[in-house]
């Protein structure tokens, strides 16, 4: 769906600094059902993030990343990164204030990466500050590079899954499992279709009742706008407000070291967690780690929302 709506948007969208905003406004206000397609695309990206996150949690809690499925887990992490990448690059495309500032801050954070940071941020911006080159680059990444990577890696993900077979529930003897095992068609397909219909209905409802509204066109002067990223990046944004992450070193700690460590732990997870036990209630560290992560993400997200009120 994301691809279909994305391609449809491209019929009208122009990725230039002087027309991106106007063309998006045109999609929203003039093109028949443009508001719906854009809304669907926009809310779909949230749905995608939720689904991917839920899926990762399930895999984690069910211990399905363990041998022999290490590679599937790694490819899955890459897919997660790609989905977040879609969200980050897509956000700039309408070229409104929200877009501009989310990108400005996001890229400044990337700049803090050791060694490669300056190069990476200039590479993405296509210059010292965000402008036309940034828009072109984000556009190409959003509609060409990431979709290609997504298709390739999703294929690999499924292929590896077919090789290793599903992990299944962690309880039950082989005999019980056999009795519950079913073919992919028709029952699994049926469940999937129902699931998809529910997701489709949710996204459509959101697109309908909460259509995308653009702020003013992007300029390096924020006016009265208080920059804030999309909700799924909010917790990252909020935790940088903490005292502990102040100053140059704190900043590095909060924006690079901590997320980097988390990433590294996730990547290495199937390799140091070699215990074949899959039942989550017998893996206290994994359970605690997961709960702590979720709770802190929720806390930061909620506190970011509460903080909004103090700003006006």
């Amino acid at each position: 769906m994301r691809t279909i709506t994305g391609v449809l948007l491209m019929f009208y969208y122009v990725p230039t600094a002087d027309h991106a905003y106007a063309s998006t406004q045109y999609i929203i206000h003039d093109v028949d059902y443009g508001w719906f397609l854009l809304g669907y695309h926009f809310w779909g990206s949230s749905a995608m993030v939720i689904c991917v996150f839920a899926h990762m949690s399930q895999v984690f809690l069910w211990g399905a990343y363990k041998k022999p499925r290490e590679l599937i887990w790694l490819v899955g992490l890459a897919l997660f990164a790609i989905v977040m990448g879609f969200g980050f690059t897509g956000y700039l495309l309408p070229w409104d204030q929200r877009a501009y500032w989310a990108t400005t801050v996001g890229v400044e954070i990337m700049d803090k990466m050791p060694l490669l940071g300056d190069f990476m941020s200039r590479f993405l911006k296509g210059g010292p500050t965000p402008g036309q080159m940034t828009l072109s680059r984000f556009f190409v990444i959003h509609v060409m590079v990431l979709p290609a990577a997504l298709i390739g890696l999703a294929g690999l993900h499924l292929f590896l899954f077919r090789c290793a077979g599903p992990a299944g529930p962690f309880r039950g003897t082989p005999v019980e499992l056999k009795a519950k095992t079913d073919y992919f068609f028709p029952r699994q397909i049926w469940k999937d279709v129902v699931g998809m219909a529910v997701v489709f209905a949710c996204i459509s409802a959101l697109a309908f009742w909460e259509p995308v509204v653009l702020l003013e066109e992007a300029t390096p002067d924020p006016g009265d706008y208080h920059p804030e990223p999309e909700w799924y990046f909010l917790f990252l944004f909020q935790h940088l407000r903490l005292k502990m992450f102040s100053g140059e070193f704190g900043q590095f700690l909060g924006s690079m070291l901590l997320p980097g460590l988390l990433g590294a732990v996730l990547v290495l997870l199937p390799f140091f967690d070699r215990n074949p036990e899959r039942n989550i209630f017998k893996r206290p560290f994994a359970l605690i780690g997961w709960v702590v992560l979720i709770v802190s993400i929720l806390l930061f997200t909620v506190s970011a929302i509460i903080n909004r009120e103090y700003l006006d």
Partner: peptide, 8 residues
């Protein structure tokens, strides 16, 4: 430009 991460 804010010297923290570039907002206004």
């Amino acid at each position: 430009k804010c010297p923290h991460l570039g907002c206004g």
